[in-house]
């Protein structure tokens, strides 16, 4: 079964133009971003295999990348990616309370997705580089800064 879309292939082709001819391996990270986005936020073995085939590289090289970088999910996750920054600057401004609140509200723990497949509560180890707007979280790549519990309820409530 072929799942790599025509649109994804076109975007990968554009990426390849950025690298020397025999260096298509450099396009793996970008290609995985593209196919993960199209597949509602996670990668499957089929998709990774097809990326490898399309780039004419061994599948292992794609798996290595997919499992190393934290933005790639190799297991099914909820379609909205919610990452609460808990690193030092956010911790000092109350990130732990925010995590408690969100875990209770959604009824899941960090690292899990809600049963309806709506929200994935990502374990964010890295600092997200918005420390002056702490506490902050990233929802589907969008940065929400200077969070309060009310603000969070609204942001999560607005997700479809």
């Amino acid at each position: 079964m072929k799942t790599l879309s025509k649109h994804a292939k076109e975007k990968i082709d554009l990426l390849l133009e950025r690298f020397p001819e025999d260096r298509q391996r450099s396009a793996i990270i970008g290609a995985l971003h593209i196919v993960q986005h199209e597949n509602t936020g996670y990668l499957t073995a089929e998709l990774m295999n097809e990326v490898a085939e399309y780039l004419s590289i061994p599948t292992m090289q794609v798996y290595e990348v997919a499992t190393f970088y934290s933005m790639f999910n190799t297991m099914p996750v909820g379609r909205h990616n919610v990452a609460i920054c808990t690193n030092i600057s956010c911790m000092l401004r109350g990130a732990d309370e925010i995590v408690d609140h969100v875990e209770k509200k959604l009824g899941i723990k960090i690292g899990d997705s809600t049963a309806d497949g709506k929200i994935y509560l990502k374990r964010e180890e890295e600092c997200l580089a918005a420390c002056c707007g702490a506490p902050m979280m990233m929802v589907d790549h969008h940065y929400h800064e200077n969070l309060t519990l009310d603000k969070i309820d609204k942001i999560l409530g607005d997700l479809d």
């Binding site: 950025r18 450099s26 990270i29 970008g30 990348v65 970088y69 934290s70 790639f72 890295e126």
Partner: peptide
């Protein structure tokens, strides 16, 4: 000049 987008790794 090209942009390269990473994927999460300190």
């Amino acid at each position: 000049l090209h942009t390269f987008v990473g994927a999460g790794a300190y």
